[in-house]
Amino acid sequence: MYNYVLRRVGFMAVTLFLVTLIAFAVTNILPGNVALVILGPNATEESLAALQAQLGLNRPLYVQYFDWVLGLLQGEMGQSLRFGEPVSALIAERLPRSLLLAVSATLIAVALSIPLGVYAAVNQNEAPDVAASMFAFIGISMPIFLWGLVFILVFAVWFNIFPTGGYTSPTESLLGSLKRLVLPAGAMGFALTAYIMRMTRSSMLEVLSAEYIKLARAKGMSQRVVVLRHALKNAVIPVITVIAFQFSYAFGGVVVLEEVFFWPGIGRLTLTAIQSRDIPLIQGCIIVVALIYMISNFAADLLYAYFDPRIRYGGDE
């Protein structure tokens, strides 16, 4: 296990290095570099050259890359062209909001999917099971942004229970903040429910056919005790891994969902950066989102390995 973790951390460092290469490469072959973005399309050759020299853009690419990575290591990501603020400050402000959304969505998904999965497993192949798996299938089959729009249509437009979007800080008004969180987190949570429910169901089915469950039944324990106290405890282990993967999926999905709900998190920041060709901000956002996505996937891998000691890294080796 210890070796496994060390190897994984090593691989993650390599991956992270490659991620910075990709982010740098992609943003540096953008049509029109930073100087052109700042000065606009009517700039003269001389003024462009002067600004490029001032920003260090005329240096060789590898020097620029090295400089940029050194800055990254110190948490320095440059100035945003559009906002005129440090990229790190902008991200520090937006990121917690996105995390709040992703965490709430995951919690909602867990609260919905585990009871549903258990219920489906206990009633295997009967009407509730079929209904639950259809529900799961529909959940998976619609893009997250569509669930967002459907939720807005039903709960904000038709029934007018919740606001259509926007963000209120919890320090400003806790209730107002919660009210605005319910729809986006609910829509995302609904989309995540399907996978966790499926996993809970199949894991429960496996456990329910185990010998010790038969024994517990033979001892005359009630269905309720057998299912909730004996089976669920063991069945929930593989589910935890899926939940961790779903969190990273949720975080990856916020880019689109935030646009639907006008939620000012890192997803909308990335979109704004892309639309205004704000290269330092694009780079910063890409790196931070990739980093969090990687860490949560890594955590899921570790949990998976921790709960399943049969895992030897490399499979057949």
């Binding site: 990709i22 975080f251 990856g252 999905g253 880019v255 990335t270 979109l271 892309i274 890409i286 990687m294």
Partner: peptide
């Protein structure tokens, strides 16, 4: 792995 370290929609957007 590096290419998979990006959420799919974000990578597509960047490209």
């Amino acid at each position: 792995d590096a290419a998979m370290a990006f959420p799919p929609v974000l990578l597509a957007l960047t490209l």
